[in-house]
């Protein structure tokens, strides 16, 4: 009888936890442990100087270490400009809204260090990236210099990719940018495991 008293609450807790540990978005039941604090917040705001949040979906945070387990060449750290290291992670925002851009002048496209990805400069400091698919150029993302000084070639890109009818967007620094396809696959595979049953 005493064992029944102890085990029954535990059974009730175990039965409740799956539904309280995820948040449903589109067809996905996203584990709260992977969501950014902003994605979990329902706190209202009284500061009308900021925009409304319509159209901005939840964001999923993947630790660099987890990415490294699946993509062995993913750099988890790299030297900081000052002292110590910086830590690379991937934070993906999900949205039903997609950015669509078109190449302005094909002759202005330049090669990138990524296969099939071409860059079209918008200024000396930022450029749009397109994925060459057959004779088409599909919007891949926006890139910008992010180093120390205008001649530092370090850069980052905010990359948009399709997830079925939705899109994911994440920023990636040049240290790991050659892995973008593997990162896309990792995220897609992860989301597949999170489809609501």
């Amino acid at each position: 009888m005493n064992q029944l008293i102890i085990f029954t609450p535990l059974l009730l807790i175990a039965a409740c936890s799956p539904s309280t540990s995820t948040i449903k978005w589109d067809k996905y039941c996203l584990p709260k442990a992977y969501l950014t604090p902003a994605s979990l917040s329902t706190a209202p705001s009284n500061d009308s100087n900021f925009d409304k949040n319509t159209g901005y979906g939840p964001s999923i945070f993947f630790e660099g270490k987890e990415l490294h387990k699946h993509i062995s060449s993913f750099k988890v750290t790299s030297p900081s400009h000052s002292t110590g290291n910086i830590y690379h992670h991937i934070q993906v925002n999900l949205s039903n809204n997609k950015i669509i851009k078109h190449v302005l002048n094909i002759e202005d496209l330049r090669h990138s260090d990524m296969e099939n990805i071409k860059f079209e400069d918008q200024s000396p400091y930022h450029w749009v990236a397109y994925d060459k698919a057959g004779s088409d150029y599909l919007y891949w993302g926006d890139c910008m210099l992010d180093g120390h000084g205008e001649t530092d070639p370090s850069y980052r890109c905010t990359h948009q990719f399709n997830i079925g009818d939705t899109v994911g967007t994440y920023t990636i620094k040049d240290e790991n940018i050659l892995l973008h396809q593997k990162i896309d696959e990792f995220i897609l595979n992860k989301l597949n495991t999170w489809q609501c049953k």
């Binding site: 950014t36 604090p37 902003a38 994605s39 917040s41 705001s45 500061d47 900021f50 925009d51 409304k52 949040n53 319509t54 159209g55 901005y56 964001s59 934070q91 925002n93 949205s95 809204n97």
Partner: peptide, 16 residues
């Protein structure tokens, strides 16, 4: 299509 004003962030975007 995010929010109402182009280039104006929401608090969640800023927090993210």
């Amino acid at each position: 299509n995010i929010g109402e004003i182009k280039g104006l962030l929401s608090l969640k975007q800023m927090a993210d």
